[in-house]
Design a protein around this nucleic acid. Structure first.
Lengths: 270, 270
DNA sequence: CGCGATTTTGAGCACCTTCAATCCGTGTGG
DNA sequence: CCACACGGATTGAAGGTGCTCAAAATCGCG
């Protein structure tokens, strides 16, 4: 597991995800400070856990690059994907030292900024701005979890598919704006999509094909494209004005138009 | 909507939910301080919203008494219940001033401690301990949301029923310890249970009857009893050691034995 | 070119839904 | 005191969405 040297070795001041990430609210001086607090960056290979279900974890992670997913496994092997972690996301924060009820696994190579929980808490104690940022991100995560609950609990298979794709596209969108119809590399197998939507892989496949046949999306080779955002919203039964990730971006502007600058303090991601 | 005078008029120092609630981490002096920050208590009638989906809400709430639920409504009337709010719970915290993606509705009369969000944020800025407490509670909420995601996404109807009942019983348990077999007043209609589990009311009814026929639970007149906690865990497919609410309470002790004192700082509820 | 992983397709089945009717407990008005 | 209305719980029957099982096709890759 080699380090990528260049990117990872560089300090917090040149952090690629700072603006959108946890440290976006820190001053230059505070940045120096937190650089002392964090551990050396770490790279996780595809298929390996960042942290595991059932084990205590005394570190928190900022995703510098790559894709991971949070998951919960049942005794008999059934798996639910709880969230996808994208660059800029902050995961692993849980107070107390108890075993985590869920794990996190790398989908592709994942580069991490690692901060020991205890040191982070101490740091937060001294830097209220970071506390607010943290609360903001936690609250955002909760909100997204609620959206998914509604999706899985009350939506049809097709609606869920559409909703998941929209969420992923918008979250990526915010990190690197794109125009409508442009391909997006989404390194998810249909099995992963199935575990995120609460469906079987087989049915996931049929729903994706349905969306493709309707001309709403296209996919293949790990690439996805949204051809018709408006209709994807319609199918998903999602009001663009109401979803946590798309806040402040109209449908028209969502895939290529103006993106509101990520607001600095309140809620970096939603 | 009359005030209950006695309880509600009294100050933060005699707050019935302080130990388990948001303010559990505050000193006596800080308590005086926050008493200046909060608004007068408020009572919400059954069926009315504490705050509504689609509307901005600039206040946060501590539940002093009663039951409420967080919900999301789809265009066509489908409803997902995201969480139940019990006495001691803290709800409504979302950074930014945007419309809430979900609402909160009172099931029975609900008494609230109301704090304007802006003032709370300012207070938090001065009192790191409260920030940590808040982060802890948010993180706990997120974790519980994740559990429900797994439940709804990957469990059968019967498993979900069992899991929901367990969660509710444990959360109540923590507030007022009880012995096994003792009745618990749970003011939920089967329709509410259905919307929380992602099932239809009809099927909810059949699953409840199934559990009753097996001698695992009993119910009627808004009263529920868990007759056989161990088997309820088995049916729910839940490992007592792994669930957020039951942390630190063995099955044996869960319904009447020793309850670990609610840890003061990290994670008041899970 | 051949292997494993993933995607795709088909057919039958089952869990849960839908629709509809009945029952029950409680409160209300005659 | 009883008739009635109402919300909620219960029951039955039929149908469909999504699952299971199984096999074929395709892709990625050495």
């Amino acid at each position: 597991m080699p380090r990528t040297g260049t990117t990872l070795a560089s300090g917090c001041h040149s952090c690629p995800i700072r603006a959108n990430g946890l440290c976006g609210s820190l001053s230059e001086a505070e940045l120096d400070h937190i650089e002392m607090v964090r551990e050396p960056p770490r790279r996780i290979a595809p298929g390996r856990d960042l942290f595991s279900q059932g084990e205590p974890c005394d570190e928190v992670f900022n995703i510098l690059g790559g894709w991971a997913f949070l998951y919960e496994l049942l005794e008999d092997g059934r798996r639910q994907i709880l969230n996808f972690a994208l660059p800029g996301d902050f995961i692993g924060f849980r107070p107390g030292g108890r075993a985590s009820t869920f794990g996190a696994q790398a989908i592709v190579h994942v580069d991490l900024c690692v901060i020991p929980k205890r040191r982070l808490m101490a740091f937060v104690h001294e830097h209220p701005a970071l506390a607010l940022r943290l609360m903001s991100m936690l609250s955002c995560d909760e909100q997204m979890a609620y959206e998914r609950l509604t999706s899985i609990g009350r939506k049809t298979a097709l609606e869920r598919m559409a909703a998941l794709l929209l969420e992923l596209f918008y979250r990526l969108q915010r990190r690197a704006p794109r125009v409508p119809g442009e391909s997006l590399r989404i390194p998810l197998t249909q099995t992963l999509i199935a575990d995120a939507t609460g469906l079987t892989p087989v049915h996931t496949n049929r729903m994706l094909q349905e969306l493709r046949q309707r001309g709403i999306i296209d996919y293949g080779n790990g690439l996805f494209r949204i051809l018709d955002p408006q209709r994807l919203f319609d199918v998903a039964g999602v009001d663009p004005a109401m979803c946590p990730w798309a806040q402040g971006t109209g449908v028209a502007t969502a895939f290529g138009g103006d993106i509101e600058p990520v607001s600095c303090m309140p809620s970096p991601r939603c």
